[in-house]
């Protein structure tokens, strides 16, 4: 039985992607890559939860309009967020006439969606699928931690939940957005579903440490099975390990015999100017990897600056109830392998 690297039965491409972010993200180094933003993080809604839903709606709408298709041209939609009952996705994507499956993979949801969309599109059941994920700093903060205006002091290992939503449209044809002659197609050649790993981390302010072993496990399994060395990939992108998790992951990979120092980047470290913006260990949340991959990473692949990238969407499966009951925080990491078809740089 196949449990490792999963290859779609036919070629699958990222046809379109879109990113929507808030004000803090627009002050970060990737600002010019994002499609839509609202500096006030409100997106015209009167509650933070509705703002998150609106971000998802905008993200998918943007991805669809880039392709010039209708929502009925999409076979299935896989979406998730951090809110209880996946409220962000359930409400935000109501207006689209697309069969829908809700996902929860904590911060790994973007990768989880990509894995499922790739396998479904690649199986031949559907020619085109979409996946969307999001997080909103204020909505997540008040659900998982403290009220937004509460005057607490954050630890240096804590991460900042990204306000953002990323959408991807995955399909069997390598359609390139209209009027874009410079870009190349981006293929998803294979994926790997992560294993849930619990290394006993109980500190909800050190999610990076909780997720690093899961990311290392997925990468190790991938390198072992594919027989490829880490240096042979253009980029190894992790979701939101932040400063702490990235440090640990690089150490763990070194001890596993697969050093990734040369080409590892983390979306949580890419999205903010960590010191300047006072973001402690970096960004986190479903939106973190979703917007970074949907904009910056896909752009790098489209223009051929990076020939192939391994994206490991990391998630800390934290429940405030279990944490209060003394439980630990399991981590997970799903892998997506992107290949650029742009050769002449």
């Amino acid at each position: 039985m196949q449990r490792g690297i999963l290859y779609p039965s036919r070629k699958v491409f990222v046809q379109s992607s879109a990113s929507v972010v808030g004000g803090h993200e627009m002050k970060g180094p990737l600002a010019s890559c994002f499609d839509i933003h609202d500096d006030k993080d409100e997106f015209g809604a009167d509650t933070w939860e509705k703002s998150e839903s609106e971000m998802q709606r905008l993200a998918l709408n943007c991805a669809i309009s880039k392709l010039g298709i209708k929502d009925t041209d999409i076979g299935a939609l896989f979406a998730g967020d951090l809110l209880n009952q996946c409220a962000g996705s359930n409400f935000g994507l109501l207006e689209f006439d697309i069969p829908y499956l809700g996902l929860y993979g904590a911060c790994s949801t973007a990768a989880e969606g990509l894995v499922i969309a790739t396998l479904v599109s690649g199986s031949g059941y559907m020619d085109r699928c979409a996946c969307v994920s999001s997080s909103h700093n204020c909505a997540a903060e008040r659900q998982f931690r403290y009220p937004i205006e509460y005057g607490g002091q954050r630890t240096p290992t804590s991460q900042w939940t990204v306000t953002g939503s990323g959408a991807f449209i995955i399909g069997k044809d390598d359609i390139i957005c209209e009027g874009d002659n410079q870009s190349g197609a981006v293929e998803i050649s294979d994926v790997m579903i992560g294993r849930t790993l619990d290394y006993g981390i109980t500190d909800a302010n050190n999610m990076g440490a909780a997720m690093a072993p899961a990311a290392a496990d997925t990468l190790r399994r991938y390198f072992y099975e594919s027989g490829r060395e880490p240096e042979s990939f253009g980029l190894i992108v992790t979701g939101d390990l932040g400063f702490e998790g990235s440090k640990i992951l690089r150490e763990l990979m070194k001890t596993e015999g697969y050093p990734i120092y040369a080409n590892h980047v983390d979306c949580g470290l890419l999205i903010y100017n960590r010191e300047e913006q006072d973001k402690h260990a970096g960004g986190s949340g479903c939106g973190c990897s979703a917007v970074t991959v949907a904009s910056y990473i896909i752009d790098l692949l489209r223009c051929g600056k990076v020939q192939d990238a391994l994206f490991v969407g990391t998630g800390a499966l934290m429940s405030p109830t279990s944490t209060n009951q003394g439980g630990s925080i399991p981590g997970i990491g799903h892998l997506v392998h992107f290949i650029s078809h742009k050769r002449d740089v």
Partner: peptide, 21 residues
């Protein structure tokens, strides 16, 4: 990975950036 929970937890705590007390 050949790493026990206790060892990893200790390692993660030791490597974590400390609060500037």
């Amino acid at each position: 990975m050949n790493l026990s929970k206790q060892t990893y937890k200790k390692y993660a705590e030791a490597t974590a950036e400390k609060t500037p007390c």
